[in-house]
Amino acid sequence: MTDRRRINGPSGGTSAPVYSKYLTKDASTQIERPMRSRAPNVLRKMFLKTGVTPSASGSAYLELEASKSTNTNTPGLASLSTSGLKLTCTVHGPRPLPKSAPFSPHIILSTHVKYAPFATRKRRGYLRDSSERDLGVHLETALRGVIIGDRWPKSGVEVIITILEGEEDQWWGDDRGRGQVTAGEWGMMSVLSGCITVASAAIADAGIDCVDVVSGGVAAVVRGQGKQSTALVLDPVPPEHQEILAAAIVAYLPARDEITDLWVKGDIGNQAVQSSSYEELADNAVQAALGSHRVLVAALKETADMKLGRS
């Protein structure tokens, strides 16, 4: 049934057309794919702030800076080459369950992850699709081992994350048929990592007891300059790499040295990447999670000092 209350946008991409002298029909003069300028073990700068939604029990906002294009001959087009990450999270609860609900000796955790319609180049629908439901399941798994649930019997808490800007799965130039399309939704890995970190900050802002603050980290095995060479990088940006062979995301508890969620995608069992292993990939994802954990702890300390009136 057609929704008469609003005018829905087109189902395809919604990016505005770009008229520039740098976009010509000659393939030799087209702008090139952006290259990673960071070292393999360097993460992107992260901004994290709690208490952004006063009406919620706890809230947080996370933003990862968009990578800058290294091509200095195309000013003004850096935003088209790569994408950043912007997430907002609200926590509602703990609050009593309905009287009709069965008795539960521990808290009932509910997670909801949704892309905004304008979050990616391909416009998202108003109803959750399979990828968004998968993100919600992974987020619930990561948070379930963190919250001390037996302190709130017959209670529920809702964690709602809205993705304002999501990672792209490939370079925008691949849509024009000028590059090799990388198979797989690799942008979901970075999105899930950010969801875990921002949800942990919102839960701490809500005053819910946890065993530790959990943070997310991503590592990937990417194809190098040579066809046979590979590299292992932290915090990968899919548009910056011609091909991603495998990626891993972990939800890590530094105080306990525990992993509450692990998601590995891709295949590194062939001859081209025999120098890497799944254990090494997971270990590097843990190192990326430690970098996110430092930012998370600093943001929580800043919020605590503001609430206590410290200078």
Rank of each mutant, 00 (worst) to 15 (best):
E140V: 02
T82C: 12
P239F: 03
L308R: 15
P238T: 00
S200D: 14
A60P: 05
S11R: 12
T260M: 01
Q30C: 09
L64E: 07
K86T: 05
H138S: 08
L290A: 02
A206L: 07
V233M: 13
G156M: 15
M35N: 09
A246R: 00
K265M: 08
E243Y: 13
K301P: 00
S200K: 14
G179T: 09
A142V: 10
G207F: 07
D26R: 10
D174T: 15
S67M: 06
M1H: 06
K265N: 11
G207K: 08
V159Q: 02
S55Y: 12
A255E: 05
Q180I: 15
E168D: 07
T120D: 09
V52I: 15
S276M: 07
A27I: 15
E165D: 13
G177Q: 04
T53H: 14
S28A: 13
S110T: 15
V218I: 13
S276W: 09
V297N: 04
Y61G: 04
A201F: 06
G84A: 06
R4G: 03
I107N: 02
L85K: 06
G166H: 03
Y278L: 09
V159K: 01
W172E: 01
G226N: 14
V250M: 12
M35Y: 04
D134W: 05
A66N: 01
D212W: 05
W172S: 02
M189N: 07
D283G: 02
A289S: 05
S67V: 09
E167T: 03
R121Q: 02
A27C: 05
P75K: 11
Y278N: 10
H92C: 06
I7K: 06
Q274P: 03
T88S: 14
S28D: 11
T53F: 15
